[in-house]
Design a protein around this nucleic acid. Sequence first.
DNA 1: ATTGCCAAATGAAACGTTTCATATTGACAG
DNA 2: CTGTCAATATGAAACGTTTCATTTGGCAAT
Lengths: 334, 334
Amino acid sequence: MAITIKDVAQHAGVSVGTVSRVLAKNSTVNDAIRLKVEGVIEQLGYRPSSLGRNLRLNRTYLIGLLIPDITNPFFAELAKQVEMLASAEGYSVLLANTHDDPKAEQMQVEAMLSRLPFGLILVPVSDSAVNTIVAGTRTVTVDRPLQGHALVSVDNARGGYMAADHLLSLGHRNLGYISGPSSTEVSRARRSGFISGITEFRRQHSGMVVESRIVEGNFDYLSGETLGRTLLQSAPGTRPTAIATASDQQAIGLMRAAADLGIRVPEDLSIIGFDDIPLASLVFPRLTTIRQPIAEIARITLEAVLGRLSPQKEWMLEPVLIRRSSSAFAPPVT
Amino acid sequence: MAITIKDVAQHAGVSVGTVSRVLAKNSTVNDAIRLKVEGVIEQLGYRPSSLGRNLRLNRTYLIGLLIPDITNPFFAELAKQVEMLASAEGYSVLLANTHDDPKAEQMQVEAMLSRLPFGLILVPVSDSAVNTIVAGTRTVTVDRPLQGHALVSVDNARGGYMAADHLLSLGHRNLGYISGPSSTEVSRARRSGFISGITEFRRQHSGMVVESRIVEGNFDYLSGETLGRTLLQSAPGTRPTAIATASDQQAIGLMRAAADLGIRVPEDLSIIGFDDIPLASLVFPRLTTIRQPIAEIARITLEAVLGRLSPQKEWMLEPVLIRRSSSAFAPPVT
DNA sequence: ATTGCCAAATGAAACGTTTCATATTGACAG
DNA sequence: CTGTCAATATGAAACGTTTCATTTGGCAAT
């Protein structure tokens, strides 16, 4: 049987209220008694039950974190940052994966809400269903927007634009783009940013010919590899000299495909990824990419979920181009 | 104000007890009333509070998961598996990172216990301190042993042995080993398994000369790269023709170092990792490795923590050798 | 008409806290 | 010696459930 505040009170010969006030550091209580009570607490090894406490205060110190897949390095990093900040503030993190499945997402949201978290951080998969459910709990959405809730994300369109701009400025005129699933806003934004980067370039260079080919899949390694293969197996001469991807994972899969086909990076093919996961600087060659400021995203998200930020509805962060060795000047035209 | 069971009772014109019994599907309640109550619940959007429930039952449906670093692909995979299984059983997962820091570990354990999880899954960093603290909550340890608690792990010594055996059977006689930190039992077991693999081989081949050089660092990419560089920069002729590592991350860092130095894998250097993280089959060349059966580890761990397994104190799983392209026959001696 | 029985609903207690109104104490001024 | 006040401790209520001992009502058997 666990030790309750009553046991402590009894042993110390005081009332439960007094013990409670001893525990609440800021309350006024006679020094002798305080010492006595603290002694008993120590001796009995009493640990306040959060159950009673939560009920009484009608408030938990839980933050729900609902992401597609903790195995994805981007989300792992996000989870880590969020957890670090949260636990520094005395909150604990409830983790759940949606596996990009709307059904699973809904169930997980339900499960989380039944635990009455103080707030919810959500990387939503589906647009509907969810928004009715999360009423009542402060919810902040990361990466993907959700009707009626705060959103923290990187400026994905800008990132896509930067990727196109980088490749074009290196002289590439035949580009490929490996997109994420069109069902997500993130994918769409990155891709349309990429496209408008090209459009803008052509406008400025009065109609210069820029070819581009876009293929679509998931954000994972495998999609990068398969779609990369598709792009790279175009007839020689029409094969892109540079490819941008919607995630670093795809980019790494793409590098893999290039290696298999004997295509050298960056000599024959420039690659630029998106995210800047830790691995990006460890693959060979080191990956040029569009970095998402994850720590910043995590910080703002948590502050927002704790209600410390003005109730602004959207925070959009600037991505930054990280130049490494996977991108280089276009090979001379022969 | 949230809707409570009282509100439901009032609206339905029944007592709270009845509503409670309607919610507990297996109880006996008149059909007409059941329907009526269910209607009111639906209409009011009532959602039982886990706060009251937990207090009354003196039981939460939380599983604490305390790992060194969610960013490490191995732990990410473990977390994913555990979360999947747990949520299927109606439990939620509390996640925390220790960052391999005993101080942080202790704080995190305290924080978790104050939430009264039903059980705790722990990948311990430090050997002391913790074991007194976790008394009272069923705790299962993964990967690293902790006095007085159940342990689920792979047979690390066996894994190390298998790595040595694999390289030796390919004809390599000059081996390198990149170890994890000696402070962890895991590292020590893998390394000593590797060493005894060599010893055993020499015994069976009556004293055949096998050289080996061991360096030590962390489990991460960076350590693999730096230590790899150290090993590979030995005087030519004495440089190892095969290197085993204590983690796939190290192995990938090592591949990176080899690429930088112009050493071809597997032609000039065979590499074998440990873990079989998803990335292992995506790097170039695909990584030969010793697989930990993570799904199995997760399954057993969760069952154990839920108290469904006989109170056996230790489960040790067999690792399995996954042969891919990063290891090959030793180059002919010149 | 009385009794006994069963099914089904009720009322109240209990879980471990916090908090607020109230009670106690001691010191000190009048 | 009384009255007042500040300082501090107490007791009880409340948070939202579940559960158990009781009550209620209907109906069959006597």
